[in-house]
Each structure stands twice: as structure tokens, then as C-alpha cells.
Simulated scan of single mutants.
Amino acid sequence: MCQSCNDKPETLTREGASRRDFLRSGAVLAAAPVATSMIAAQAAAQTTNGTLAESKVQAWAAHDTEGNFAPYTISRRAAGAKDVVIEIMYSSICHSDVHTYKGDWGMPHFPLVPGHEMVGRVVGTGPEVTKFREGDIAGVGTMVDSCGTCVNCLADREQNCLNGTTFTYDSADKISGGVTYGGYSRKIVVKEEFALRIPPGVDLAGFAPLLCAGITTFSPINHWNLQHGQRYGVIGMGGLGHLAVKLAAAKGAEVVVFTTSEDKIADAKRFGAAEAYLWSDDAAIGRQMGTFDLMLSTVPVAYPMQPFLNLLKLDKTLVNVGALFEVQGAQGMLMAFGRQSLAGSLTGGIAETQRVIDFAAHHGIAATYEMITPDQIGTACEKVVNKEARYRYVIDMTQV
């Protein structure tokens, strides 16, 4: 294959294999006539059923920084040639949703329809879609578009698009204009490249949180190459932290949890942690000094980090995925003496998100959640702030 072809962004086949490898194998040549006729037939059938047309959709929106949610009707664009139309079944509440409507990251555009952890059924596909068929289960996570051509997009890091990632809600909508609306709604239209395949037989509601919380905690495990038997510390065990425990334990790591909630000690061990301690247990924390190969902080607010940096082995890293403003309490001399690193990470790219979905399905992992109806969103968000969630609130969007 020519170098110009190799320079194009990688595309996965429906089964998740490398499309470039598939092309090289020659298998696509034999399948092409059948595939072409199937796609044409699907396109003809779906064009007539109206699911591809622009539509008005019922949603739930925050109308102010106090989190007053109410029903709200939004428009979803007509599906393009490479778009999929997904009827949302489950959408979960991420702490990012709360930060956004509260204006913690800048004043949002109201009415705001949050939600970037959603799973639903494909009810329509554009004529050039190859990744999904009607009836498939798909997920949408934290982003719905990127340029596809910059060095970061070509490296499967669409979340770091140099020309501007389009996030799933409250982001400039480069296709329809205005801002994007998220998963607290009945339907979404998205490019097939930004929809994830959800394997059959899984807990669909429990898989919704994987689209943000799952990939946010899985990506550092990949990037810092956590190995079987290594000691892995999870600081804070909420929506993100509980999935961090489950995923790292499935990798064979020795997981240790640090929490401020005494009732989470037993849960941590049930999720796979070898040990769990309260932050206030100075003696226990002191015994951990210099023992960790990797640590992950999921706490959504700033706090003094040096006591946890002290727990790292020489040359190891504490990754912050929680507090997204100024971090506190990291002391240069102590970090230098231990040659410790304090790093940041956010979400992952589409390929990596598919990887965590497949990993979770293989290992029988799903979020621990409480199902709610849309009229309970505001109350659930308050409980998230008060650390009362155990551990994700999932909205049954079929009740809209």
C-alpha cells in the first residue's frame, strides 16, 4: 500500500479489526459485491422510514447554575451519509455535568442538556455507514467530532484535536451551528466514527458510565503501562474511582484505595481492592510510603497532594484525573528527591474507548449504579456533590 494511504487515519472494521490489515489481506475484494448490495439495500430501506430526517426530540435541561432541570425540546439534525441515529436508552450522570451547569469551568449556554455517557439502539444509518446496522447497540461518550487530520487525531487522540474537539454537549456545533446537546435526551445523531460498539449480553445501563468514567480511568492504566502484580493506588472512590478499582484489579494489579468515606472501605474490597484506608488514618498511610508503582487521583476538587506523592516508589507517577484547576500541596524538593511525577490525564480517544468497552465485557465489569427517572436528575446531581452516589446514577431515558 502506498505511503499516502498509510498516512490516513486508521479505521476499524465492524468487528474491530484494523481496516488497513483487512484491505491488505484481500478479503475485502471477495466481500465487496455482497457488502455493496447490503449497504445499498439498507440505505434504501432506511431512507423511507423517516428516521434519518431532522427531528424534534424530548430532553431534560438545566436552566440555571442551581441545577433546576425541566423538560426541554431540542432539534436533532438530519442524518448525513456517515451518521448514525441512536435512540438513547440509558444516560448516566458524570460529575462533569454538575461542574458544567454550575459554571465551574466557565458560564455554560442555557438551557443546557448535559450527558456524555449514553447507550442506546441504532434506529437509522446513513447510506455510507459500515460500522453499524439498525438494531445494533451503540454508545456515545465525551466527544462527537474532531478534524480527523491533525497529528493528534491521526494518533487516535481525538480528545486532543489541535483544531478543536467537538465535545458532546455545550460545545460549538460545527455541523448544525449553535451548541451541542448531550445524552439527557431521547435521541442523538452522530458520525459513525464517534459511536462505540457495545457488545451483546452486557448490562447496558452499567456500561453507560464506561463512556467517560471508564475510559478516563482506563487510559492512565494503558499509558503508564500498569502491569500484573504492581501496586496501584486509587485516591477517592466515587463514580470514577470505583471503576478504576475494578479495571485495575482485572489487570491483575494490587489495588489500594484511599477514601474519606468509611462505608466505602468494604465496597472497595468487594470491587477488587486488596486494601482500603481512610485518609485520616495517618499510621496506615505512613506504612505505604515508597510502595506504589502508579497512583490515580479521582477527587474532583483540589487538595494537598504531597502526602500521596510520598507513597510513590522512585521514578513513579501520580496521575490526576479529578481536580481540573490548580492542584495543591506538591512540594518541588520532595518530588525532586524521589524523582516523582505529577501528571494529568483526561478522557481517551475513540479507539481506546472501544478498548475499555471490550475489556470490560471480557472481564464482566460494569459500573455499580442506581437507576433513576428523568424527573430525579436534579436531586441525583445534588447527591453526587454530597458524595452520596453509590456509585453512578443512570437515567432511564425511555421514561422521557
Rank of each mutant, 00 (worst) to 15 (best):
L247N: 04
A249G: 08
A250T: 08
G252P: 01
G252K: 04
A253C: 05
A253R: 02
V255G: 00
T259A: 08
E262M: 09
D263N: 13
A268I: 00
R270G: 10
R270C: 02
A274V: 13
A274H: 04
E275A: 07
S280Q: 13
D281I: 00
A283F: 00
A283H: 10
I285F: 07
R287T: 14
M289V: 14
G290W: 08
T291S: 11
L294Q: 08
S297V: 06
V301G: 04
Y303M: 15
Y303F: 15
P304D: 11
P304N: 09
P304V: 01
P307N: 05
F308D: 13
N310D: 15
L311M: 15
L312W: 11
K316I: 02
L318I: 05
V319N: 09
G322Q: 06
L324D: 06
E326R: 14
E326F: 03
V327C: 09
Q328I: 06
M333G: 07
F337A: 13
F337I: 13
R339T: 12
Q340D: 02
L342H: 08
L342A: 05
G344C: 09
T347Y: 13
G349K: 03
E352W: 03
T353Y: 10
D358Y: 02
F359P: 04
A360W: 05
A361Y: 08
A361V: 00
H362E: 14
